[in-house]
Simulated scan of single mutants.
Amino acid sequence: MEERLRKLKKAMERTVFDELNFTEEHKKKIRNQIRMQKPEASEEEIRLSIFQLLVQKRTGFELSRLIRARGIGNFEENEGFLYMSLHQFEQKNYLNTTWEEPDVKYYQLNHKGMKVLKALEKKSEGRARILKEMVER
């Protein structure tokens, strides 16, 4: 979990949840319901998240963990899908990859990948603006 989320969790535990008491069984049922309701992200949302996170050099494991932190659970049962996507991006020459330490592969967007990221973000912003206009009418 990212540091800012940890701080938020601690702050909420001290204030918002201070007066709430749940049994372990109740907590378990709530967690299961949340997992079951988690909608899968679209391929475009996944691609945007991957590209945003790969502005910095990361391993596949780090990337997987950060994607889950964003609430995208598509890879929880099939992490091979993430590595398959990374391989495709590498083949399309969107990523620079390096091997460091014994057997640790790092991924990072290159210039071509940054152009794709900007296009994905622009497209995403357009959709968000349209939804906002629809809601405000």
Rank of each mutant, 00 (worst) to 15 (best):
E79L: 09
F81H: 13
G60R: 06
E133N: 06
H26Q: 13
R127N: 10
F81T: 14
F89E: 10
K118R: 12
L86S: 08
L54P: 03
R47I: 00
I130E: 15
F75G: 06
S42M: 04
E13T: 05
I34F: 02
G73L: 00
K132E: 11
E44D: 08
V104H: 12
H87W: 11
T15N: 11
K9H: 13
L66I: 04
G71F: 03
R65C: 11
L8H: 05
E43V: 02
N96C: 05
L120H: 04
K112Y: 09
D18S: 15
E13A: 11
V104E: 12
K118T: 04
K115T: 14
R4F: 15
L120Y: 05
V16H: 10
Y94S: 04
Q33V: 05
S64I: 11
E45N: 03
S85N: 09
G73Y: 04
T23S: 07
R4L: 15
A41R: 02
F75R: 07
D18W: 11
T59V: 02
L109R: 01
T98L: 05
S49C: 06
E62Y: 00
Y83N: 08
A41F: 03
K118E: 10
N21D: 13
L95A: 00
K10E: 14
L20E: 07
L48T: 06
T59I: 03
Q33I: 07
E133Q: 12
L109Q: 04
E100V: 08
I34W: 00
V116T: 13
K29Y: 03
E125A: 13
F81G: 06
I72N: 04
N96S: 09
M36I: 13
V16Y: 14
M36D: 11
P102G: 12
H111A: 15
E125N: 13
K92A: 10
E44W: 02
L95C: 01
V104L: 10
K28G: 07
N74I: 03
K38F: 00
L63V: 04
R127E: 13
E76P: 03
Q91C: 05
L54S: 05
G60H: 04
K122T: 13
K132R: 10
S124C: 03
K28T: 11
N21Q: 15
F89D: 12
G60P: 06
A128S: 10
M12F: 15
T59D: 07
I72S: 02
S42E: 06
Q56K: 14
E25R: 03
K29R: 09
E125L: 14
Q33R: 11
Q37W: 06
E45L: 01
H26Y: 08
R127C: 08
I30Q: 00
V135G: 06
R4M: 13
E3F: 09
K10V: 11
E19H: 14
E79R: 12
M134P: 01
R35F: 01
M12L: 15
K10P: 00
V104K: 15
E136I: 09
M84R: 15
R47H: 00
K115Q: 15
E43C: 00
D18E: 12
N32E: 15
E101R: 08
K122P: 03
N93K: 14
K122S: 14
D103P: 05
E45T: 03
K9Q: 13
L109Y: 02
E62S: 12
E25H: 00
L95H: 02
L48V: 04
M12K: 14
K132M: 07
R70Q: 15
S64H: 13
R6P: 00
M84Q: 12
T98W: 04
L63A: 01
M1V: 13
N96H: 09
E100I: 01
